[in-house]
Design a protein around this nucleic acid. Structure first.
Lengths: 164, 164
DNA sequence: GTCATTTAGTATGTCGGCCTTACTATATGG
DNA sequence: CCATATAGTAAGGCCGACATACTAAATGAC
């Protein structure tokens, strides 16, 4: 077997890194097609912000950024647009005047329902011919992979644990 | 139960769309940390192009773009950089002077090995405490999800199947 | 009480990953 | 022969992220 053959056989275009990238890119495209069809006025990342806010209620921005795993500035950009669309509101934190509390507005209810429906349709496309049992195990492993990767990310961030 | 409670309980920040986005974002970050550590001279998307080329050998650009699921112009950008880095070469297709055949250069061997090693390390972080059996089923379901989504994408592209 | 240090949020600039439109050169088929 | 389609690309743009540096506010050691 030549060296060339051994090198090219070793790399796997379906390894975890590439496979998760494919899944995300294709799921996002499917979701965006459904968002367009339903005229939902948010992007997929903005939808994710709203989904997390719906789950955790009124929250400080820094906590929400941490929960989403993005830099505070990234969240600020998303919130600017969502505030402009009338879907969230920012208020001051009486216990710390630097901090801001973000909340969903009543207008967000309808959009959240649209997002949920778009997600349902995209997931239905993806899940075709996959049993409930396989699906449950897939989700379980995916959640554990995410947890492991989230831990690795926190360990890699400067200023955490051992001083930089 | 109030209406507000029912709406916010319905949306799931861990539904497939958001979950795959999280996995991709975190895997990409882990892979990029390993690429940086190993001084690998490519981005994650460029690595993916090389991985697919390694698998399918000398190929026309339009076929490679199709295999990667990106627009021809997107692939052109990646190939420009890889060519500039000396990792791929473009040649003419004698059977069609419009078409170009892309091949890996000998210099790509070492980079492919580095990419494979970076991917191994990232995957090891992610897989911690996940059994071989669970892993195998996860991969199987992920590949099927990708296949389903790829089919849905092809069906949605204008000019395919039923005329637009 | 003072002040060095830290933190919350943001302005600005940048990068990577993609896309669309429009173009030239070439191929195809009626 | 020529209308139509295709391969690859130039140009411009969008989205999702980040880093640095800044202001305002909080904290804690002394």
């Amino acid at each position: 077997m030549t060296k060339d053959a051994s090198v090219t056989n070793r790399i796997d275009p379906d390894s975890l890194g590439f496979l998760t990238g494919d899944l995300a890119r294709l799921m996002r495209a499917a979701f965006e097609r459904e968002i367009d069809r339903g005229a939902v006025p948010v992007t997929s990342a903005e939808a994710r912000v709203l989904a997390h806010m719906a789950r955790c209620g009124a929250t400080r921005q820094n906590k929400l950024a941490d929960r989403l795993g993005v830099a505070p500035m990234s969240l600020t950009g998303f919130l600017d647009k969502l505030e402009q669309a009338g879907l969230i509101a920012r208020g001051t934190d009486p216990s710390d005047r630097r901090a801001k509390i973000v909340t969903l507005t009543p207008a967000a209810d309808a959009v959240l329902e649209q997002i949920a429906q778009a997600g349902d349709r995209a997931r239905t496309l993806a899940r075709r011919d996959i049993s409930d049992a396989d699906w449950a195990l897939f989700r379980d492993v995916a959640l554990r992979l995410r947890g492991n990767l989230e831990q690795a990310r926190r360990a890699a961030v400067p200023g955490r644990g051992v001083p930089a």
